[in-house]
Write a protein that binds this DNA or RNA. Structure first.
Length: 160
DNA sequence: GCCAACGTTGGC
DNA sequence: GCCAACGTTGGC
């Protein structure tokens, strides 16, 4: 099996936090509501077993709080067809749903890595998250960037 | 709560 | 197909 690709996925903790995923049935859930084509296309590239960092955005101290595994590859997003959902999309149909979800599995909480501190780590200069004006909610993490992040998390775990 | 950056919409 | 207007994201 090909070694897993890393990703980063943002969620506002007030809407859906890592704890929410941890306490979901089977610690698994669908990642719905993505309404940006670039982010959607990244989700469509995800493979089962890929690793995604869970990032809390639009909160007091944004940063990475843990990790997940991709449990199932992209499928149509049911919320796009649900008129009751805040993510309802009038241009999507059952035959032609514009939007996708992946199924994610809780893996672990990690030592908190704030956005502020992430900016000080060397080797992350090209990380999309840190690029000016970036608003992507789903983005790839290169092997090199993942290695830097895991090094940070492992070092924090050892020193605690 | 402010606002810069960005994506989308819709008139033309 | 251009682009102004508008809505959203998300750090601060």
């Amino acid at each position: 099996m090909k070694h897993p690709q890393h990703w980063l996925m943002k969620s506002e903790p007030d809407t859906y936090s890592l704890d929410d995923l941890k306490h979901a049935p089977h610690q698994s859930d669908i990642w719905d509501g993505v309404r940006n084509y670039q982010a959607r296309n990244f989700m469509r590239q995800m493979a089962v077993g890929d690793i995604a960092f869970f990032y809390h955005s639009n909160c007091k101290t944004p940063g990475i709080v843990g990790s997940m595994r991709i449990k199932a590859a992209a499928q149509p997003d049911p919320t796009a067809l649900d008129i009751e959902s805040p993510y309802f999309d009038s241009k999507s149909t059952l035959e032609n749903n514009r939007w996708s979800i992946v199924t994610v599995q809780y893996e672990q909480h990690l030592p908190f890595l704030s956005l502020q501190h992430m900016k000080t780590l060397t080797g992350l200069e090209d990380f999309p998250l840190l690029q000016r004006g970036n608003r992507l909610s789903v983005m790839p993490v290169s092997d090199k960037q993942a290695q830097i992040l895991w090094h940070y998390f492992n070092a924090q775990k050892e020193s605690s």
